[in-house]
Amino acid sequence: MASEIDETNRRDFLMIATGAFAAVGGAAALWPMIDQMNPDASALSLASVEVDLSPIEEGQAITVVWRGKPVFIRNRSKQEIDEAMATKVEDLPDPEARNAAISDDAPASDVNRTKKGKENWLVLVGICTHLGCIPKGQRIGDSKGEFGGWFCPCHGSHYDTSGRIRKGPAPRNLDVPPYEFISDSKIKIG
């Protein structure tokens, strides 16, 4: 009888070990099938872009493409900067800076979303943080929303002159992509 129990135990062990082996093998076989859908190295390595800012007059904006995404570059007027500076961080739905260049928990003050000494230049990923539409406000005559920045017509999100969400369903401020000034009037994004 004792030997019978022993035998059952050994068999149980073998069953479980085999099952576990098959499960791990199955999972390992599954991973390539899942990961193939992720962006590959050729998509990740898409070169950075350089943009000459000199033709952009005060109050004007241009849109460039970086990694297949639109990037908004606006040369803000004095009034737009003042409005952005005057807004208190406590009043913002999203208090985080969302700037690739600084830490995640930095407050969303206007200085944290621009480069020092270049406060007139606002560079943003032009994709609404709600569901990915491209907000209006780049072209002359576009609606800029209730806060003078951008307005997303898809579900009604209003962004201010610092690209911060103020009203509507979007949860986050527009992202500031990684970029640097490589000369006084030229930036490199990415």
Binding site: I34, N38, P39, A43, R67, G68, K69, I127
Partner: peptide
């Protein structure tokens, strides 16, 4: 990004 296979809706 996994659904897109990139950083926006595109050929993949």
């Amino acid at each position: 990004q996994w659904l897109w296979g990139g950083f926006s809706v595109d050929n993949p």
